[in-house]
């Protein structure tokens, strides 16, 4: 039977837990504002992932993992045409560009990045299609879901903390008055530099994220770091959204079942059978 719903009602963690416990085989498609992601499972293990927001070509996966340069990846993508990933992988191994382990670890890392990206979404339509697997040409790497669920839950906590610290992504940023000179002495990652290059009082954080293809979690994490380092500050901040009041504790009133004899229950059973 189909599993359909919305992440509002049944979270990514709960979905993965269900697939893990029921040892399901099939594809889980989740549609969020950033695009459509499909995860594939075999007997409760994650084996493959694809997402519309990221190029899934093997050369691109290897480039993201640092196993190929961007230039190499570009040439391979152009020349390989419609060559399937498995075949392309064999060619790259034969040519000595990468090892089998490089490919396995890179694909695994890419699949994990894709699935972890889903944990931060709290709204999105999902659909599980039983027995649907990726094509035979795809490179699949079986990954146990337990650790993904644990790591995902940790990220959700981190996400919640970041959301508390930086609730509004519609604010803009500007460099602090202690200025640019400091940037030269700071070690920033590629992603941080990408964000820095868009910092301008006219660009909201959300617009920067959209421009460079980051999800809310990634951009929050980077901006939080930059704020903490005192490199940037928020401008035109808006009030944080109101927090939900804590739910009241459930009143516990326990009573036992009435003492009704078995003979009475037998009579009821017989009567209902005869209905």
């Amino acid at each position: 039977m189909a599993l359909k719903g919305n992440l509002r009602d049944f979270s990514t963690t709960q979905l993965l837990n269900l697939i893990h416990l029921a040892r399901k085989t099939g594809s889980l498609t989740i549609q969020v504002p950033a695009g459509v992601t499909t995860l594939y499972f075999r007997e409760g293990k994650l084996v493959y992932a694809s997402t519309g927001s990221r190029d899934g070509h093997l050369a691109s996966v290897l480039a993201r993992a640092g196993k190929l340069t961007e230039e190499q990846a570009k040439i391979i993508r152009t020349r390989s045409g419609t060559t399937a990933d498995k075949e392309l992988g064999m060619l790259l191994i034969s040519a000595g560009h990468v090892t089998q382990q490089d490919i396995v670890l890179s694909v695994r890392g890419d699949v994990l990045d894709t699935v972890y990206g889903l944990f931060t979404w709290s709204d999105g339509i999902f659909h599980f299609e039983p027995n649907q697997l990726p094509s035979d040409d795809a490179i699949t790497v079986p990954i146990d879901l337990e650790n993904i669920i644990l790591e995902g839950s940790r990220r959700v906590k981190e996400w919640e903390r970041l959301q508390d610290e930086l609730p509004n992504l519609n604010v803009a940023l500007k460099f602090t008055d202690r200025p640019q000179a400091q940037l030269r002495n700071i070690n920033l990652s590629v992603d941080e530099w990408r964000v820095i290059s868009y910092i301008n009082p006219r660009n909201s954080i959300k617009q920067i994220a959209q421009r460079i293809g980051m999800d809310d979690f990634q951009i929050r994490k980077i901006i939080y770091g930059l704020l903490q380092a005192g490199l940037v500050e928020m401008v035109e901040p808006e009030g944080a959204p109101p927090r939900r009041p804590p739910s009241t504790a459930m009143q516990e009133i326990v009573s036992g079942p009435p003492a009704v004899k078995r003979s009475v229950i037998r009579k009821l059973i017989d009567r209902i059978k005869r209905l």
Partner: peptide, 9 residues
């Protein structure tokens, strides 16, 4: 009812 039967006196 079968469940109730299990605990009924």
């Amino acid at each position: 009812l079968y469940r109730i039967m299990e605990t009924a006196p």
